[in-house]
Design a protein around this nucleic acid. Structure first.
Ligand SMILES: NC(=O)c1ccc[n+]([C@@H]2O[C@H](COP(=O)([O-])OP(=O)(O)OC[C@H]3O[C@@H](n4cnc5c(N)ncnc54)[C@H](O)[C@@H]3O)[C@@H](O)[C@H]2O)c1
Ligand SMILES: NC(=O)c1ccc[n+]([C@@H]2O[C@H](COP(=O)([O-])OP(=O)(O)OC[C@H]3O[C@@H](n4cnc5c(N)ncnc54)[C@H](O)[C@@H]3O)[C@@H](O)[C@H]2O)c1
Lengths: 227, 227
DNA sequence: CTGTTACTGTGTACTCATTCACAAGCTTTG
DNA sequence: CAAAGCTTGTGAATGAGTACACAGTAACAG
C-alpha cells in the first residue's frame, strides 16, 4: 500500500523559482495567452484583469494571482500590456520559438494532426513522424517523411524532441514509451485509451475523447444546474 | 464585477441525490470503467480497491470515496465485482445504452472522428452530421448523410441529441451554439479554440490540443520532478 | 499641488478535495 | 466456533486551491 502512494500523483503541482504552481494554473495560462492573441488581433493595447477574467470565465482575483506567481506584469491603473503579457506567457510556456514534436502512428488520427495548421501557430511543429506499417515507412505524408518505429532511437538522436504525441494502436505502446523515455523524450500527449507508466519527471497527458463524452453524459443525465 | 461572479464556475461540482460531486470525480469514474473493462477482458471476477487504484494511479482511499458517493458496491473482504461495477458505472455515466451525438463540421477532423470505431464501444454514436459546405451537404460521408447546418433546428427536432461535437471553423460558432441550445442540445465537446458562451445548465468541454502541448512544454522547461 | 478614482498585487480567510485511520464486517482456518 | 486477517465505507484531519478585501500606487482632474 505504501508503495502505491509513492507513484501516485500526490502533489499535482510544479515548481517555479521555489514556488509551487498548481497544474490548473498552467492550463489557465494557455487560455489567457490564446484570448490575449484574439484581443491583440482586435487592436487592444491594454487590458484590465477584470476584462480578461471575464473573457475566460475566471474571477479577476484568480487571474491576478495566477500571474503574480511568476512576477509583476501589470501596470497599475492601466492594466496589462497585451503584447508584453503575450510575450511573458509564451516564455513561460516555452513556445517563444517553434518546438519540434514527435508523432507516433500515421493512421486516420495521425494524418489529421499532421495536416492541422493550428499547431504551428501555437509554437509546435510535428517534425518527426513514426509508424510501424511497411506501407507507410519511407513515404512522405503531409510533407513529412515517415520513419520506422524500429529505428526510433537513431532517429530521435538526430532529431531530439521533448514531446511525443501517441496516435498508434495500444499493442506494444508501453515499450515504445520506454524506448522514447530512454531516448530523452520527456513528455507524452496520448490519444490511446490505455494506461502507460513513466518514470518520475516524465509527464503524460491523456486525451481520452470518449471520457469527455462520458463526463458530459453524466452531467446531462444528472441535470446538473451549475457550470 | 459582481455580475462576473455569477457566470463563473464558482462551484465546479454536480449534484447527485443531494450530494455534491466534484467534476474530477466524474472524470475518474470514466477511467475506472475503462480499466475495469480491461480487467474483465483478462478474466478478472473481483478486484480490490488497492488493485484498481494502483492501475489508475490514485490512492485506494480516493477510489473508495469516489464510489461511496454513489452507493455501496463493494463486497467486504472480496472486493468489487468487476461486472457489477462496470454496470453501475455505465449507469452513472449514462452509457448503458448507445447515445446519439451530433457532429458539426466534416473537415479533416470531423471525418476522422466519424471513422473512429472507439466511440461506439464506449456508448456513443455520431448519428447526426452537419456541415455548411454545399459540396458536402447531402453526401454520405463515412456512412452518415451530411445535413445542412442551416436546417439544424428541423434536423435536431427529428433526431434529438444531448451532446454535440464541434469541429468546424470558429466563424459564426457562437450562433450555432445558441441555435443548438435552443433546439435542446445540452452539452458540447468543442475542438475549436474559441470561447463560447452557454446558459446555466448547459455544459462545454474544451478539447484544446495546443493547450495540452503548452502544458507539457511548461512542465518540461521548468524541469518539474513530480507527476 | 492635492483629492479622487481605479487598478494591481497579496495577506488572509475560506471552501473544497484528498488522505488518514479506524470501526464494522465477511471469510477462512485451526 | 473463535480468532486472525484483510476488506469496505466513512468521520475526522489535513492540505490545496480559490476568493475576499485592502494596502499601496499610478493617473488624472480641478
Ligand atoms: N481516430 C480517432 O478519431 C481517434 C479518437 C480518439 C482516440 N483515437 C486513438 O488513436 C489511436 C490511433 O487511431 P487511428 O484512428 O488513427 O487508428 P489507425 O488504425 O487509423 O492508425 C494507427 C496507425 O498507427 C500505426 N501503428 C500501429 N502500431 C504501431 C506501433 N507499434 N508503432 C508505430 N505505429 C504504429 C499503424 O500502422 C497505423 O498507421 C488509437 O489508439 C485510437 O484509439 C483515435
Ligand atoms: N484537424 C485537427 O487536427 C485539429 C486539431 C485541433 C483542433 N482543430 C479544430 O477543429 C476545427 C476543424 O478542424 P479541421 O482540420 O477539420 O478543419 P477543416 O477546415 O478541414 O474542416 C472544417 C469543416 O467545417 C465546415 N464548416 C465551417 N464552418 C461551418 C459552419 N458554420 N457550420 C458547419 N460546418 C462548418 C467546413 O465546411 C469544413 O468541412 C477547427 O476549428 C480546428 O481549429 C482541428
Amino acid at each position: 500500500m505504501k508503495s502505491i502512494r509513492k507513484q501516485v500523483e500526490t502533489a499535482p503541482s510544479a515548481q517555479f523559482g521555489g514556488r509551487r504552481i498548481a497544474l490548473q494554473t498552467i492550463e489557465r495560462l494557455s487560455t489567457y495567452r490564446r484570448v490575449l492573441e484574439d484581443l491583440q488581433g482586435q487592436g487592444a493595447q491594454y487590458v484590465y484583469s477584470h476584462q480578461l477574467a471575464e473573457y475566460v470565465s475566471v474571477t479577476p482575483a484568480q487571474l491576478r494571482r495566477d500571474l503574480s506567481l511568476f512576477g509583476s506584469f501589470g501596470n497599475i491603473s492601466r492594466g496589462y500590456n497585451v503584447q508584453h503579457l503575450i510575450t511573458v506567457l509564451s516564455g513561460l510556456l516555452g513556445t517563444s520559438e517553434i518546438q519540434p514534436v514527435a508523432l507516433v502512428g500515421v493512421g486516420n488520427l495521425g494524418r489529421t494532426l499532421l495536416a492541422y495548421g493550428g499547431f504551428i501557430e501555437r509554437g509546435f511543429s510535428l517534425e518527426v513522424v513514426f509508424d510501424s506499417d511497411p506501407a507507410k515507412i519511407g513515404r512522405v505524408i503531409a510533407g513529412r517523411r515517415c520513419f520506422d518505429i524500429a529505428e526510433a532511437e537513431a532517429v530521435l538522436a538526430g532529431h531530439p524532441v521533448d514531446i511525443a504525441i501517441l496516435a498508434c494502436q495500444p499493442q506494444g505502446l508501453q515499450s515504445i514509451v520506454d524506448r522514447f523515455v530512454a531516448a530523452g523524450v520527456q513528455s507524452f500527449l496520448s490519444f490511446v485509451p490505455a494506461i502507460i507508466r513513466v518514470p518520475p519527471g516524465v509527464h503524460v497527458e491523456m486525451e481520452d475523447l470518449s471520457a469527455k463524452l462520458e463526463k458530459l453524459s453524466f452531467l446531462v443525465k444528472n441535470r446538473v444546474e451549475e457550470e
